[in-house]
Amino acid sequence: LEARLEQAGVLKKVVDAIKDLVQDCNFDCNDSGIALQAMDNSHVALVSMLLKSEGFSPYRLDRNVALGVNLTSLTKVLRCAQNEDILTLKAEDAPDTLSLVFENAENDRISEYEIKLMDIDQEHLGIPETEYAAAISMPSAEFQRICRDLNQLSESVAIEASKEGVKFSCSGDIGSGSVTLRQHNNVDRPELSTKIELTEPVALTFSLKYLVNFCKASALSSVVTLSLSNEVPLLVEYAMGSGFVRFYLAPKIGE
């Protein structure tokens, strides 16, 4: 594998977004790019990430390879890169190590690091194609604020989507709270719009601890999309220019 990324910051943000949810995981390298799928330890959430091969220049791969990486170790090495550095990932066919090279734009500094890889026997889950009953896109910063605010009052949030809007509500020992967003279109700054596509009303309850954790991906995209259907996991998606980070969260049950 040899994959060169113009901005090391992209990988830094991706790893920052998922490192508190999963510790050890395989980066699966194939023709479509570098992908990752992992569940958290408690098997409540699943993260799915893809950095498409088009996002790298060049992207060269002789045969598919799974790079078993400890994300804490990778974070330590990525801290040694500037966001604007050019990052090149290199690995042999049956690798023991992953090589990371950081070069500044002026091309007068080259940093070379290696991290040890591990064998990770990870089960891959098939995610069924789902026609979601509701898809809500909104500013990622706003979603982050709502999750953090409500998490002060409660450990779970009810998300209700209807044609009137989307309502996030919670109640806890000290009281209760809710935030309702109505659809609106910001013509000048579309990333600040809230869009609600609805085929039928949805009401589900989720753990806020996980949602707050997902919001660490907010640096990746100014827009987040929430996709919901009754009785299936919530999909929280951060799209990047050439890839995505998706989080799936199992709903609370037995209300």
Partner: peptide, 14 residues
């Protein structure tokens, strides 16, 4: 709210 579902019960093993 009484319980937390697990993600494996929604997605199938490959």
């Amino acid at each position: 709210v009484t319980g937390q579902g697990s993600i494996n019960s929604y997605f199938f093993k490959k």
